[in-house]
């Protein structure tokens, strides 16, 4: 489980400085699932080279419910979250040959696929609403991926993961909760045990720190 490994890699002082609730949350995450780290990249490679259904099934069983869980957290309806989860897994099979194990890793890659599908699904819905309301709209293909594919990934993978490790546990949690899980500030405040008034500044501090670490290594 990557969560377990990440938790172990946290600097001791950061762990010690954590409010109890966060520490508890991290250790709960660490204790579920098998101890051995599954090599997702290897499984994706087997799908790409051999169309390995067994490997794909393992990827599906692990990631499909998690994609659905993340989409629900980010505000999708259950039907929409289910559809995005299934379509993401179809895309994982079809794009397996494009996966570069030298990049940020399988979970991040799978996240970007789900994210792009979610953008497209959101835009289709918004378009449909406006068409129904009588707006005339151009007939355009979905573009979320069109912009995304232009961003080169991979040259900096090692630098990026080392930068992430330099963030404190609270800093990476605050970024995850506010941007990825889209939690409301009061919820972030209570999960991290910090005053509501400081959530905004904690988010900003975490972002600046991430930018600084990435720049330092340049």
């Amino acid at each position: 489980m990557i969560a377990a490994i990440r938790a172990l890699e946290m600097p001791i002082r950061a762990e010690a400085a954590l409010p109890r609730r966060v520490a508890a949350r991290l250790s709960i995450g660490a204790s579920k699932g098998p101890k051995a780290k599954v090599d997702w990249a290897d499984l994706i490679g087997r799908v790409a080279s051999d169309g390995d259904r067994e490997a794909f099934k393992r990827l599906f069983e692990h990631f499909a419910p998690r994609i659905k869980g993340l989409m629900l957290k980010a505000g999708c309806s259950p039907d929409e979250a289910e559809e995005i989860a299934q379509n993401t897994m179809i895309a994982v099979w079809r794009k397996a040959h494009q996966f570069d194990p030298g990049t940020a890793g399988a979970p991040a890659w799978i996240f970007t696929i789900a994210r792009n599908l979610r953008i497209d699904s959101f835009r289709r819905r918004a378009r449909a609403d406006r068409l129904q309301a009588g707006s005339e709209l151009p007939d355009e293909p979905d573009q979320a991926e069109a912009v995304d594919v232009l961003i080169s990934r991979g040259q900096d993978a090692a630098r990026i993961s080392s930068a992430i490790k330099q963030l404190s546990a609270e800093q990476s949690m605050v970024v995850r909760m506010s941007f990825i899980e889209e939690r409301a500030h009061p919820e972030i405040a209570s999960a991290l045990g910090i005053p509501l008034g400081t959530v905004k500044s904690r988010i900003r501090l975490a972002m600046n720190r991430l930018r600084d670490i990435l720049d330092e290594d340049a």
Partner: peptide
């Protein structure tokens, strides 16, 4: 990419 990396970790957890 760093934020996507964090998103990958969120997906795992």
């Amino acid at each position: 990419q760093a934020v996507e990396h964090l998103a990958g970790a969120a997906l795992e957890d």
